[in-house]
Amino acid sequence: MNPENYLYLSALLFTLGACGVLLRRNAIVVFMCVELMLNAANLALVTFSRMHGNLDGQILAFFVMVVAAAEVVVGLAIIVTVYRSRHSASVDDASLMKL
């Protein structure tokens, strides 16, 4: 199978994730879309690794997963805290720091 197809899939997933980040209001969904974008990037990295015949891309993908896991922990904690204090998970409501 042509490995380029994986790249098309990766671009599609990334675009879906980006649209979700830009268009959805619910912080949880935005968060999941961010994860989607990260994994789209991972897919591209692994594909490149396969195409070039070395392991660099795969190693980088592991790094991304580790960072994503850490990010999930911090991000979810923030979302939960915001929800507790404001009874809303909308990203648009959390705009208190503008003038």
Binding site: V91, A94, S95, L96, M97, K98
Partner: peptide, 8 residues
């Protein structure tokens, strides 16, 4: 005005 507070 660009700093409108909307994360999106």
């Amino acid at each position: 005005r660009v700093q409108n507070g909307f994360a999106r």
